[in-house]
Structures are given as C-alpha cells and as structure tokens.
C-alpha cells in the first residue's frame, strides 16, 4: 500500500488572531486505492483541511505544519509550482454542481481545459479524450457540446467528476459532492466515484456530514470536532464501535432507516465538562 499524502501538525489560524485555532494539530495519511472520509459538523475544520492541501486557503488565514504529497512538501511550493499539481495530480470536486461550472462554456471545453493545460493535448487527441472521459462518467459523448444549464444536477456533478479525473490524479478530494443531489442520483454518483477510485487506484479524501454516505463509501474515517481530529479508524471501527464521546454523541443524532433508535441531540455542555480532555 503506497502512501500518497501525509499531513503532520497542521494548524490553521486567522492571520490577525494566531491563537484561535480553526484547525489544530491535524495529522493524517492517505493511501492509494483507499477512501478516507472526514466527518464533522459545520465549523469543524473539515473543508479548511481539504483546501489547505490544494493551497486554496483564503489569504486571511495562515497554515503551519507539513503537507507532503508523494514525498513533495507541497505547502512550501509557490503558486506557480502548485499550479502544475493542482488539477493534474490532485483533483477536486466541489459541493455545488450548479455554481462550480462556467455557464457560458460548453462542458466539453471545460473538461478539455486541464487536458490542454497540463498534458498539452490538442485537436483530435483532445476530442477523443474528452469523449472517453464523458463515457467513463456515464454521459453520452455528444453532450460535450452542451452548456451546463442543459444538463440535470446529477449530470453536472458527473461533468465535474470528469474534469477532476481528466489528468488521472493520484489524489481526489471531494467536498460534499452529493449533498445537493437527490437520493437516487446520490447513490449513482457514489457508485461511480467508488468505481473510479478502484480502477485508477486513486487516494480519495471525501468530506461529508452524512453518516449514511460514510457507511457506503469509506474505507477509513476521520472525525473532526472544533478543528481537531477526535477519532480515526476503519469504517467498521468508527461506525460500530465509536470510542470517543463526541463520535458516540454524533452517531446518536443520526436517524436510522429502521426507525428503531431514539434520537439524542448532542449535549455540548456535557462534552465541555471533562468528556473531552
């Protein structure tokens, strides 16, 4: 099993308030062919962690620590060198397929952009690669000439996926990619991502707040709370035998399909009083 990404001692603070930690002491490792889910509530630092890998943090924020991608310290790179990695070796899918595509460009053009930029593909070679990518995500290749508004939400998210895997990245970061989709479409997109991960032997970092999605797609799970990792483990460990009080409390909030369990909201006062060291 080969290690693709390793983060150690990552701290993120606002530049003007370096004692307020938005992300604190985060360590994680991602391996080829494995999906790691980061779960947590809004404000837990899961998206900031992902953005810091891509070097896309707001310039109001300051990150310290080490992010090593295939042995390269990517958090030390300047923006120009980072450009050669972003989109080529690390792909990213965002939550909102309606707003992350450019409405005035055809989807074929948008899928082709990273191919031209990073691989220098042109003409017939470019066209056939775009067609192959659309095929791979289950969209008829002739839709390359369509504009985003001519596609459904699920199709747009498939286009986003085609763009993000165009250069066969070693790492794919997906930030809540199915949150805006209907359940049936969500199920299709999750299956597709899982297939692509296996076929291309990618490492996938999958951010979500939905434990149902975690159960479907994760190999490993990281639970974040107020900027810190409180628990890591395999899917079975974390979902079936949660160790940390916060993970247990979070799982108690999740409605089950059988309707058997009693929902219990998180008692933050209790968590603050000693339940978390």
């Amino acid at each position: 099993m080969s290690e693709i990404l390793s983060i150690s001692q990552l701290n993120i603070t606002p530049k003007n308030d370096i004692h307020r930690f938005l992300v604190k002491q985060v360590n994680l490792k991602l391996n080829a062919g494995k999906t790691t889910c980061i779960v947590g509530e809004s404000g837990s630092g899961k998206s900031l962690t992902a953005l810091s890998i891509m070097g896309l943090l707001s310039n109001q924020l300051k990150a310290t620590g080490n992010i090593s991608f295939q042995g390269l310290a990517i958090n030390q790179l300047d923006n120009q060198s980072m450009q050669t990695i972003r989109g080529a070796k690390i792909g990213m899918i965002f939550q909102e397929p309606m707003t992350s595509l450019n409405p005035v460009l055809t989807v074929g053009y948008q899928i082709g952009e990273p191919l031209t930029t990073h691989l220098g593909l042109k003409g017939e070679a470019l066209r056939s690669r775009i067609a192959a990518l659309l095929n791979q995500v289950g969209i008829p290749p002739e839709r390359a000439d369509s504009y985003p508004d001519e596609l459904s939400g699920g199709q747009r998210q498939r286009v986003m996926i085609a763009m993000s895997i165009a250069c066969e990245p070693a790492l794919l970061i997906a930030d809540e990619p199915t949150t805006a989709l209907d359940v049936t479409v969500q199920a299709q997109v999750l299956t597709l991502l899982d297939e692509l991960k296996t076929r291309m032997n990618m490492a996938m970092l999958f951010i979500t707040h939905d434990f149902g999605v975690v159960a479907d797609i994760a190999d490993d799970v990281i639970v974040m709370f107020r900027g810190e990792i409180v628990e890591t483990g395999t899917r079975e460990q974390v979902l079936n035998y949660p160790q940390h009080p916060y993970t247990q409390a979070l799982l108690d909030c999740v409605p089950d399909v059988q309707g058997l369990k009693t929902l219990k909201p998180i008692d933050y006062a209790w968590l603050n009083h000693g339940a978390i060291a």
Binding site: T184, A187, L190
Partner: peptide
C-alpha cells in the same frame, strides 16, 4: 422501492 434502495448507509452498519 428504488427510493428506499437509494438511502445511503443501507448496505453497511
């Protein structure tokens, strides 16, 4: 049936 099948997390846990 299709809707119920698509509920995430049905196959695990």
């Amino acid at each position: 049936q299709q809707l119920l099948q698509a509920i995430p997390g049905r196959k695990a846990a």
